[in-house]
């Protein structure tokens, strides 16, 4: 069963800007799905429509088989959302925010109290339950929003750039939380500008650009399409010039560092053998760029040049 289906979804704002040009998208139940795209591509509009914050111009949204227009309550009950920006009342305590949220979904008080304890414990915020939310750190506020979104036990959780602006330690702990939530059976749709985040967490991916879906596939197949890997090689001894190896592009980044672009068909073993033949000893290897980032840029560039033509 699909957790989410979008059909011919269109949105034209009152100023005439066409944010969505008829997108179709399916997300399977239980998936950890990445929805990526550059700024202004239409991601936030699509999420806004799914979450009833934006009125669609046309098209349908179906959540676990419930049409968002015809079966509004059932569809909305399936969705939990963690928005990009803090949108809770910062004068309320953490506990009040969660209990009010449960109340909006008609969860009885006693059950809401049990769930708030569970969600806050999971988000490591139980000790902060009586703290006024504006006194929390940025990372804690983000976790409050995740806990809030979990209060009605949604089957589909939409995370709109949940780790934007938080440090790497908090980001990693949030990745762990997201994996746990997904592991418990909740479908997650993630939008992020940190592409290594999407690559690390998500099984399927859609890329949206200029209001259209330009890519929709599973992460493995998408990454397999990238046929060149980029590495930085740290050398044991300094080199005066970049070595020449046919089929491989090598640049000298510094005395002891080479910037290498290797086709997958060439292979690292062969590369190291050829370097060794030239007396160059490699002591370590680093990924120069994120693989998904490279693909993402390629796809967006291809689309842009297509549009220019």
């Amino acid at each position: 069963m699909n957790a989410l289906s979008l059909r011919n979804l269109r949105k034209t704002y009152s100023n005439g800007f066409e944010a969505l040009k008829g997108i179709d998208l399916d997300v399977e139940a239980g998936d950890f799905f990445a929805l990526l795209g550059p700024n202004g591509a239409g991601k936030s509009t699509a999420i806004g429509i799914i979450c009833s914050l934006v009125n669609a111009s046309s098209g349908t949204v179906t959540v676990f088989g419930h049409d968002l227009r015809r079966e509004r309550d059932k569809a909305k009950n399936c969705i939990g959302v963690v928005p990009q920006e803090i949108n809770f009342n910062q004068f309320e305590t953490v506990s009040s925010i969660l209990l009010n949220q449960a109340g909006y979904y008609g969860v009885p008080r006693k059950l809401a109290l049990q769930r708030s304890e569970k969600c806050l414990t999971q988000m490591e915020l139980w000790d902060m339950r009586n703290t006024v939310s504006r006194r929390l750190s940025g990372g804690m506020k983000r976790r409050v929003m995740i806990a809030r979104a979990m209060m009605h036990e949604p089957k589909l959780l939409i995370l709109d750039e949940p780790t934007a602006g938080v440090d790497i330690e908090i980001r990693r702990s949030m990745w762990k939380l997201m994996r746990e939530v997904n592991g418990q059976g909740t479908t997650i749709i993630l939008t992020t500008h940190y592409l290594e985040e999407a690559e690390s967490l998500c099984r399927n991916i859609a890329i949206i650009d200029q209001g259209r879906i330009v890519e929709h596939s599973d992460m493995k197949s998408l990454l397999a399409r990238l046929n060149i890997d980029h590495f930085l090689l740290d050398l044991a001894d300094p080199v005066a010039a970049a070595p020449v190896i046919e089929g491989v592009h090598i640049e000298r980044a510094s005395d002891r560092v080479l910037d290498v672009s290797v086709p997958k068909t060439f292979g690292l073993n062969q590369l190291f053998s050829r370097l060794s033949e030239q007396g160059i000893k490699v002591i370590s290897l680093r990924n120069k760029s994120n693989r998904l980032e490279q693909l993402f840029l390629d796809l967006i560039d291809a689309k842009a040049s297509g549009a220019a033509r």
């Binding site: 979450c51 009833s52 909305k76 949108n87 809770f88 008609g106 809030r148 009605h152």
Partner: peptide, 10 residues
Amino acid sequence: RHIEELLVAP
């Protein structure tokens, strides 16, 4: 923007 809490909920 906590109106969004009400708009997202049923």
